[in-house]
Design a binder for these strands. Structure first.
Lengths: 198, 198
DNA sequence: ACACACATGTAATTGGTTACATGATTTC
DNA sequence: GAAATCATGTAACCAATTACATGTGTGT
């Protein structure tokens, strides 16, 4: 069974804000749901063609842009129906893959300090993202608080914030725990098979 | 640039516990890192061939299994070196995709009750997983607490637990917030473009 | 004039799931 | 003897990134 999630992000984004070009749609995605969703042009442009062929979106023009080589799209009633239909289906979480956790899990086999470095790398990423999202919130509130979508956007945001804060908290204690562990190991961390790597 | 993460999971798993068959490796992955990583046979068997061809793993036999049609593998010194090399590289997080959050974000366009249902679905999944992991912990502690990998496994686990608890907490307040919102909206949720969908 | 952002698209490649196909061994 | 689990693999398909290719409009 196919899901073709790209189609639905596009429909959802156009439902919130019509008359957008492929280029703009991508930017909107990055700015609004970027912290948990990404789309590349290689996905978006073909998807727009397909959606238009199916009548779920239509080429449109708002007259707001002077650019010649630009095709805006808007969602059609059929597209909106399709979006709602998709929303009603129980979500399916795709098998997660977290390289950070994988490297953490195999930390035994890493040279000393490596795992701590990963954790710090993660902290930096999270802090940056957290800061961005926190700055975004009041702005969104000021501009869109009357939009019926607003409460849902805030719920999404608060979920992200909660996850990031919890991850950051964890990272502090993890670093502490780690340095305790690596201090205890007087010998160099044993490579399982006797031959240390370069 | 290619990453071929499957190779590294296999190397890492075999570093922890050698003499495993493809079938077993998959099971081990599910049981140990399953909550943040998955591999299918379609990935594992070809990967085993490749890794063996590169000399990073070798067919081996522990004599512990009587099965004829079974090939065990173990990691070689070269494989271990390769694993360490990979561990030393900063992790790269692949663009996340969370269908749950996407449906939450577009909740405005869903029929009433839909989003709440998604959240409850998520709660159930999390509760089940949380329970499994919590049961797992004391067992792991009893059997492996002397293994040098143990602290890293616990760190990974505690990360997962923290994330799940935080998500569950969020979900409670989200449901409350949601019912407040849906109570307020006396009219049906407005389709963005004036044309109500079927 | 130059750089940057806007804008659209395709081709190659990789990565991954899923379904299919097959069969042995163990347990009930 | 049936069912479940162990066990290995391939082929078809789908999803997605990345790099490539090209060109326009805007601001400095």
């Amino acid at each position: 069974m196919q899901r073709n999630q790209t189609n639905y992000v596009i429909l959802g984004i156009l439902a919130i804000h019509p008359h957008q070009s492929g280029y703009e749609i991508r930017k909107t995605i990055q700015q609004s749901v970027g912290f948990f969703w990404g789309e590349s042009y290689g996905q978006i442009y073909p998807a727009l063609k397909r959606l238009a062929a199916e009548g779920l979106i239509v080429p449109s023009s708002s007259g707001a842009s002077s650019r010649a080589n630009r095709q805006e799209y808007s969602i059609t009633p059929a597209g909106h129906a399709r979006l709602q239909q998709w929303l009603a289906v129980p979500y399916r979480d795709d098998p997660p893959r977290d390289e950070f956790l994988l490297k953490l899990f195999f930390g035994r086999d890493a040279a000393p300090g490596i795992t701590a470095a990963h954790i710090r790398q993660m902290q930096e990423k999270l802090r940056r993202l957290l800061a961005t999202l926190q700055e975004l919130e009041p702005l969104a509130r000021a501009h869109n608080s009357k939009n019926p979508g607003f409460p849902f956007w805030m719920l999404t945001l608060s979920f992200g914030l909660a996850q990031m804060r919890s991850a950051l908290e964890w990272s502090e204690s993890a670093l502490a725990e780690l340095s305790a562990v690596e201090a205890n190991v007087t010998a160099a961390p044993q490579p399982a098979d006797g031959i240390p790597a370069a």
